[in-house]
């Protein structure tokens, strides 16, 4: 059983506070959805969890099975079992999937001899053309191909906890279904814990969440079961724009700063 525990996390970018005391726990086999309007801090959270440069953690903690994640360099967080499926995967000219995953396996002391076959198997599972496997990373891929590529890496790297940022963008209905099936299978077969970030309920009709958290203005302002996502689809986020934070005593007492 693995547990990613985010406690009262506050993060600034260039002196502006983006996250204001976020607390959230993801355990093995669970699917959590993080929803919220543009600019609420969803992507910031995903970046901070993997240690992307440019963010300043001003308070709180993140731990994976009790080990402090925030002091680890990014690659060690990945080695420890965190995975980030990116909203906009970066093009890396001249570097293939095989090069990158081979280097990742080597760094973790995993035998990479069957890697090529693993890639082919995973590609097949999500309907990702074999021709893409030898391409430079994310170069000349469509949005949907990039998301399949991210999912394929998830399948091969077998992380403990995956943060999937806007996994649904660019995917058509069929691809969304295949990719969602693959992620759900990982939760069942490998006990993967998932934090999926999305604007829309569309993804959550395929990748069924156990819990839904609503992030607005850097705070978790509402939490509930899968039904909450359906409700949001009808009502939108307007009511949360000026809502009081609902999560914890600490955040309730945090000083103001809501814009609306």
């Amino acid at each position: 059983m693995t547990e990613l525990v985010i406690t009262d996390l506050s993060v600034s970018v260039g002196g502006n506070e983006i996250l204001r005391g976020v607390s959230l726990t993801v355990r093995s086999g669970e699917v959590h959805a993080l929803m919220g309007p543009n600019g609420s801090g969803k992507s910031t959270l995903s970046h901070v969890l993997l240690g992307k440069p440019g963010y300043e953690v001003t308070g709180g903690s993140v731990s994976l099975d009790g080990v402090d994640v925030l002091t680890m360099p990014t690659w060690e967080r990945a080695k420890a079992g965190l995975f980030l499926g990116m909203q906009y995967p970066t093009e890396v000219p001249g570097v293939s999937l095989l090069d990158m995953l081979g280097a990742s396996f080597a760094a973790s002391g995993i035998d990479a001899s069957g890697l090529s076959d693993r890639l082919s198997e995973e590609a097949e599972r999500i309907g990702f053309g074999q021709k893409f496997l030898s391409r430079p990373l994310n170069v000349d891929l469509s949005g949907g191909e990039m998301k399949r590529n991210e999912t394929l890496q998830l399948g091969v790297l077998k992380p403990k906890i995956a943060i999937l940022d806007e996994l649904d963008s660019g995917l058509d209905v069929d691809a969304l279904r295949l990719v969602s099936r693959r992620v759900e299978a990982a939760t069942e077969e490998d006990g993967l814990g998932v934090l999926v970030i999305t604007h829309y309920n569309r993804l959550l009709t395929e990748l069924h969440p156990d819990r839904v958290h609503v992030l607005a203005d850097g705070r978790i302002v509402a939490e509930g079961g899968a039904e909450m996502a359906e409700k949001l689809e009808e009502t939108g986020y307007a009511e949360y724009a000026s809502a009081k934070p609902a999560a914890t005593a600490e955040s309730r007492f945090a000083s103001g700063g809501f814009d609306a």
Binding site: P53, P73, A78, D99, M100, S104, S108
Partner: peptide, 24 residues
């Protein structure tokens, strides 16, 4: 960051990126 986030250590990542830069 992309390579680091997949578990590739910094020195190895730089090597891959520079070799890839020249690949073309």
């Amino acid at each position: 960051f992309y390579l680091h986030s997949r578990g590739v250590p910094p020195a190895v990542a730089d090597r891959l990126i520079v070799s890839g830069f020249f690949g073309e």
